[in-house]
Structure formats: structure tokens, C-alpha cells
């Protein structure tokens, strides 16, 4: 009996050790909020977009709020899907070169050069596709918000830089086909040099851009030329039926692209207000994305 108990205890310790994993990250504390569901504080990390949790105390809240915007060393233990803070402190002078390290992806950084992650195989892309959150109810959400959360998840959970693939339908198509959309968007990843679209709502696997276009144009005979600038679409509404445009993952909607091309407003960072709104694309967003909250009312984009 005693032996049995010892064996159970040993197995439990081994299990916990395997299940829990300790690590350290240098990051910028971007936001701190109090959980509405549990007695925890949620720290949104700028370097990786992850939410780190700690037990809620008034001193802890005061300490963490004072760290907002500061570069910190954060030690944590991961148990399952959650990361719990073991220790968090500001970095000592000279400990980290904040000029060269990119520690806050919620802030514009003119030195940041976006490069899409290159996946090595279709198997990797297929596995990635299965991680996309999908509650199967496309009527409750808009494509650009779903795409934004999928891109954010790929980046924050798997460190994958995706892009956004837009199809723009021209006035010619919308008017004559009596079509209700003027654009559609989904994230895309690069697999051995080829763009593969990860449309978790309408597709069952990663698709080439051409195959994805064919589905949405309801024809294999129509090409949606790839354009670099929004005005190539805006100024040519009758020559073609559609256009395709690819942008970095941070671009939420066509308005962002228009601002880039007409006002030179580059977007190389996540915007927490946008994520707070976009997360509502999924039914259980308050469980999954509790940490993506500014603490202020949600702005609808």
C-alpha cells in the first residue's frame, strides 16, 4: 500500500515536471489588466503578444502597472496553455540593448523589417491550419476580424509571421453580379516560396492563391491580378473583375492599405484596440482572448 502511494506520488511529480516548463523572456510590458473571471492579473507582453498571469494582489497590481511601457525580464512557468509569472523585474542598465532588440510589437518601430516566415513543408502548413480557431459560425463575424485573430495567433503562439491576402472585387463585378462583398481576406503563409492561403472559414486546408481565388470568383477562368498599391484597384474598376493584394499581417482592413498608399501611414505593429474588437469574431473570445483588452470600451472597426 505504501509502495503504491509512493509510486503514485512519483508519477505525479514526473507528470507535473513534464507538464510545467520554466522559461525567461525579455519584453516590454504593454498592458496590465485584472481578470474578470479569476483572481489573476494579466500581463500582455510586447515582444511576443502572449499573456502572462499572476495571482491578483493590490501590491502586485500596483507594481505591475508601474511596469507598463518598461522593458522587463519575466520568468515564467507554462502549464498547459497558460504561462504564470514567477518573477518580473525591470532590466538593469546595460543588461539589454533596447536600441537593437525589438521588444514591443504593439508600437511602431521604423527599424522593424517585416519578413514572412518560410515554412518548410506542406505538412507544417497543414498542421498550422488545424490550429486556426473556428467556431463554425461565419455569420457572426467579418472576414477581416477572423483573419486578424488567426494572424495574431500564428505570431503569438507559434512565432510565425503571416501575411494578409486580400481579394478586391471591382465595381464591375459587384454591380453586374449583384454581389454583396467588395473584398475578402485571409492570412497566408509562405511554403517553399509559394503563398498558401489559410482561410479557416471557407476552406478545409491551405490553398494556393489561384485555387482560393477560383473559389471566390466561382470561375477558374478569371485571374485577379496581384497589385502592389490600393489605387491600382480603386482607379481601375471596369477593366478587371477583381484584384489581389498582399500585405503584412498587421494590416487589419482595406482602410489600412489605403492609408499606407495615400497617406504613407505604414503599419508594422499590432494595435490592441483592434485586437480587442477583432477577438469578438469567435464565440468564446472572452475565454480565449481575455488578455487582449485595453480596459476601455471596445471600438468597433
Amino acid at each position: 500500500m505504501a509502495m503504491k502511494l509512493w509510486l503514485i506520488l512519483f508519477a505525479a511529480i514526473v507528470f507535473v515536471q513534464a507538464y510545467a516548463r520554466a522559461d525567461v523572456v525579455v519584453t516590454t510590458v504593454f498592458n496590465v489588466i485584472e481578470s474578470k473571471k479569476t483572481e489573476t492579473l494579466l500581463v500582455l507582453s510586447g515582444v511576443d503578444g502572449r499573456v502572462y498571469k499572476t495571482k491578483k494582489t493590490s501590491e502586485g497590481l500596483k507594481y505591475l502597472k508601474a511596469l507598463k511601457g518598461k522593458v522587463v525580464t519575466l520568468s515564467y512557468t507554462t502549464r498547459g496553455e497558460e504561462s504564470h509569472i514567477d518573477q518580473i523585474r525591470t532590466v538593469a542598465p546595460g543588461e539589454v540593448d533596447t536600441r537593437t532588440m525589438d521588444l514591443n510589437h504593439f508600437q511602431y518601430n521604423q527599424l522593424r523589417e517585416f519578413a514572412p516566415t518560410e515554412l518548410q513543408s506542406m505538412e507544417e502548413a497543414n498542421n498550422l491550419f488545424t490550429t486556426l480557431l473556428n467556431d463554425g459560425d461565419r455569420s457572426r463575424s467579418q472576414c477581416f476580424k477572423r483573419a486578424h485573430m488567426w494572424s495574431f495567433d500564428m505570431w503569438s503562439k507559434l512565432n510565425i509571421n503571416s501575411q494578409k491576402m486580400f481579394i478586391f472585387y471591382t465595381q464591375r463585378y459587384v454591380q453586374l453580379e449583384d454581389f454583396k462583398w467588395w473584398f475578402h481576406v485571409a492570412p497566408s503563409v509562405v511554403v517553399n516560396g509559394v503563398d498558401m492561403v489559410m482561410d479557416g472559414t471557407f476552406m478545409e486546408k491551405p490553398m494556393t492563391v489561384r485555387a482560393w481565388q477560383n473559389f471566390f470568383m466561382k470561375s477558374e477562368k478569371i485571374r485577379c491580378p496581384m497589385i502592389e498599391n490600393y489605387n491600382q484597384y480603386a482607379d481601375n474598376q471596369w477593366q478587371k473583375l477583381c484584384y489581389t493584394l498582399k500585405v503584412p499581417m498587421y494590416y487589419l482592413s482595406p482602410l489600412d492599405i489605403e492609408n499606407r498608399d495615400n497617406k504613407n501611414i505604414q503599419k508594422d505593429h499590432w494595435v490592441l484596440e483592434e485586437l480587442q474588437d477583432a477577438r469578438r469574431a469567435f464565440k468564446n473570445y472572452l475565454d480565449v482572448y481575455e488578455g487582449l483588452d485595453t480596459g476601455k470600451p471596445t471600438i468597433t472597426y
Binding site: 463585378y173 453586374l176 470568383m217 466561382k218 477562368k221 478569371i222 477593366q239 473583375l241
Partner: peptide, 14 residues
């Protein structure tokens, strides 16, 4: 009625 031909000519024009 005016509709698009969901096809392109030899030069990519619908």
C-alpha cells in the same frame, strides 16, 4: 441585361 462573361480573352480582359 448586361452581365460579365466569367472568362477572359487571350490578353486577360474579361
Amino acid at each position: 441585361k448586361v452581365k460579365n462573361i466569367l472568362d477572359e480573352d487571350s490578353y486577360g480582359n474579361p
